[in-house]
């Protein structure tokens, strides 16, 4: 790899631009796609686009196609202790985290180092942030005024994971409110609640671990992520 190619690849990933590094395994020749599509030709450019869409490397006629998508995104609603515990785990797992909490006293840079913080209401914040199929949304405030609008916004998005903290009883009440707000049963069934894999978590870091584990299980298609 030439230093110029490495710098181009790093610049694209820093800018959040999805790119594919195409490497000919016979001699190490490389293209960065789609930027070099004219030189690489349509067949390679199309295969590269497919690798990006699938978010999976591919081999095509002696070329290794290595997709570099922007980071997965995790939107945490509620700057609570569990959110703090989730931050280092989420970073290690490759998620860019945004914490949304209109309560300014909670959502401070001191409590949440190194992540994006939003103080607007979750429905407004999520409308702007536009969760996509590579996004997860977790609500942690226990406050329906904050959590409910976030869940409505999340369920109206293609987010691959939507989780809500709260006991089974709390969740039953939540479902009743959201039904009243007009959400379909199919939409409500997407909510992972009580949030997290059942590892009998007690402390904030343990709950954070159970939530992150459930997010990974959902993304990777594990049976553990299914709710009965």
């Amino acid at each position: 790899m030439t230093p110029v190619m490495l710098e181009r690849l790093l610049a694209a990933t820093r800018a959040g631009r999805p790119v594919v590094l195409a490497t000919r395994l016979a001699d190490g020749a490389q293209y960065l796609l789609p930027e070099d599509a004219a030189e690489a030709g349509p067949a390679l450019a199309e295969a590269a686009a497919a690798a990006l869409a699938a978010d999976q490397p591919a081999l095509q006629e002696g070329w290794f196609l290595h997709p570099h998508n922007p980071p997965l995104r995790l939107f945490i609603v509620g700057a609570v202790h569990i959110a703090q515990a989730m931050l280092p785990m989420a970073a290690a797992l490759g998620y860019a985290v945004t914490v949304i909490d209109p309560r300014r006293a909670f959502a401070t840079a001191e409590r949440l180092p190194g992540v994006a913080i939003r103080h607007d209401w979750p429905d407004e914040a999520l409308a702007e942030l536009a969760p996509d199929a590579r996004s997860a949304v977790v609500t942690l405030t226990h406050d329906p005024k904050i959590d409910d609008p976030a869940l409505v916004a999340a369920l109206n998005s293609p987010a691959f994971y939507v989780g809500a903290l709260g006991s089974t009883r709390t969740h039953a009440k939540r479902l009743a409110r959201l039904r009243e707000a007009g959400l379909s049963e199919a939409a409500l069934a997407r909510i992972h609640a009580p949030v997290g894999l059942d590892i009998k978590a007690v402390t904030a870091p343990e709950i954070a671990l159970s939530i992150m584990a459930e997010i990974v299980a959902t993304r990777r298609g594990s049976g553990l992520a299914r709710r009965g």
Binding site: P3, L6, E7, L9, L10, T13, D55, P57, H66, P67, H68, N69, P70, P71, L72, A92, L93, G94
Partner: peptide, 18 residues
């Protein structure tokens, strides 16, 4: 990105070379 090999590795490689 970490799942895809990590830009950290590439950034470190660039630093070492620099």
């Amino acid at each position: 990105m970490a799942a895809q090999g990590g830009e950290d590795v590439l950034a470190l490689a660039a630093q070492w070379r620099a």
